[in-house]
Amino acid sequence: MKKIILCCMAGMSTSMLVAKMQRAANEAKIDCEIHAVAADQLKSNLDGANAVLLGPQISYKLSEIKQLCNEAKVPCDVINMLDYGSMNGTKVLDFAIKMFLDPIG
């Protein structure tokens, strides 16, 4: 099972996207667990994570969060603003999967 973490300021604005991603994963029969967490709680939730996705509203924290994720050997990136804004769970799920299948690139 893969673990995907969506990270925003309070862990709440990504909740709807988490639900849409989980629905897309279930429909595609992809075994994964997707959670939303606040940025200040990310460190305590990184154990076992395969990818961390940041909401566009906290993209300014990317270098700080990427350093934390690099130490844990977890790929991290910002969700595309259009996919986030349209709550496109399938596209964001695909992005996360590509991150842990090809973490370099």
Rank of each mutant, 00 (worst) to 15 (best):
M1I: 13
M1S: 14
M1K: 10
M1G: 11
K2S: 09
K2M: 10
K2E: 09
K3W: 13
I4T: 06
I5M: 04
L6R: 04
L6W: 08
L6G: 02
C7T: 15
C8A: 02
C8H: 01
M9Q: 07
M9Y: 01
G11A: 10
G11N: 07
M12V: 15
S13H: 14
S13I: 13
T14H: 08
T14D: 03
S15I: 14
S15L: 14
L17N: 00
L17T: 04
V18P: 10
V18I: 14
A19F: 11
A19E: 15
K20S: 03
K20Q: 06
M21V: 10
R23I: 14
A24W: 01
N26Y: 11
E27N: 07
E27C: 01
A28H: 02
A28C: 04
K29R: 11
I30A: 03
D31H: 06
D31G: 06
D31V: 06
C32Q: 09
C32N: 10
E33Y: 06
E33N: 10
E33P: 06
H35N: 12
A36Y: 12
V37Q: 10
A38I: 05
A39S: 15
A39M: 15
D40Q: 11
K43S: 11
K43G: 04
N45H: 09
L46S: 09
L46N: 08
L46I: 15
G48E: 05
A49D: 02
N50V: 03
N50T: 08
N50M: 05
V52T: 07
L53M: 08
L53K: 01
L54G: 00
P56A: 07
Q57F: 06
I58D: 08
Y60V: 05
K61S: 08
L62Q: 01
S63Q: 14
S63I: 11
E64F: 13
E64K: 07
I65V: 04
I65P: 01
I65L: 04
Q67N: 14
L68I: 11
L68H: 06
L68A: 05
L68M: 13
E71M: 04
A72W: 15
K73R: 15
K73P: 07
D77E: 07
N80H: 13
N80L: 13
M81R: 13
M81Y: 13
D83T: 08
Y84R: 04
Y84W: 09
G85C: 06
S86P: 02
S86Q: 12
G89T: 07
G89D: 08
T90A: 03
T90R: 02
K91I: 05
K91D: 02
V92H: 00
L93H: 01
L93Q: 02
I97D: 08
L101A: 11
D102E: 15
D102I: 10
P103K: 09
P103I: 07
